[in-house]
Design a protein around this nucleic acid. Structure first.
Lengths: 108, 108
DNA sequence: AACCATTATCGTAATATTGCGTTATAACGA
DNA sequence: TCGTTATAACGCAATATTACGATAATGGTT
């Protein structure tokens, strides 16, 4: 149905799924990469960098902000986006922890 | 449009987005967690564990298999799923690398 | 062969996502 | 005040995803 039955899953599982959404679209990966290398970004810079319209980019930024992994600050007529350190590290820990759970074994 | 313009993004970005899809739904996180602790699984076990129908679970398994992060082996009338070590480690590297790109700074 | 258990596939419905054009909105400078 | 610029918000269309019941398909068992 396109509707995720999140209520039947554990909080941790929903949380990871939410965080993963920050990386599950190439445009969002590109935006995050831009933020990582440029430390800060203004939407208009992204419009010049990415082959997407301004409104589409704004929407991706909104989603990233909802997830919490980025935050924006008004700077005159512009908006200064940057990575939210706390959430970033939280996401990093969640993923690294998850990946660490795997212990190779010749099972199949 | 619901259609992702993947052709305009870099391979790396699309690759990460694809891998992230393995984790962007709580049911898939739950399936992977089950595989992590049980090392192996038969679909029917999951049907008993998760509050989702058999067909829905089968679909999630199919997607995980398409991503490549799990693989399945026929075992009589059953199917034995397990984590694909190579892809798992590849995903781990991609994510860890990405997370490592962030250097905290008081920017905003 | 008939039957059972297990899993995949199909069809369908509901909802979500992606993308864009267009229209606000807000801040600055002339 | 009036443009100009930068962003957000709205609304639409197209496609994707999620979920399930029903139906196949597969392999083993009797």
């Amino acid at each position: 149905m396109g509707i995720t039955k999140s209520e039947v899953f554990k909080k941790r599982q929903n949380h990871m799924a939410t965080l993963a959404k920050a990386f599950d679209h190439p445009a969002r990966v590109a935006i995050l990469e831009y933020l990582l290398t440029n430390r800060t970004c203004i939407t208009n810079d992204l419009v010049n960098q990415l082959p997407l319209s301004q409104s589409t980019i704004s929407q991706h930024l909104k989603e990233l902000k909802q997830i919490g992994i980025i935050k924006g600050e008004v700077e005159g007529p512009k908006l200064n986006y940057c990575i939210d350190e706390k959430v970033w590290e939280e996401a990093r820990d969640v993923f690294i922890n998850f990946f660490a759970k795997y212990v190779p074994k010749n099972c199949c």
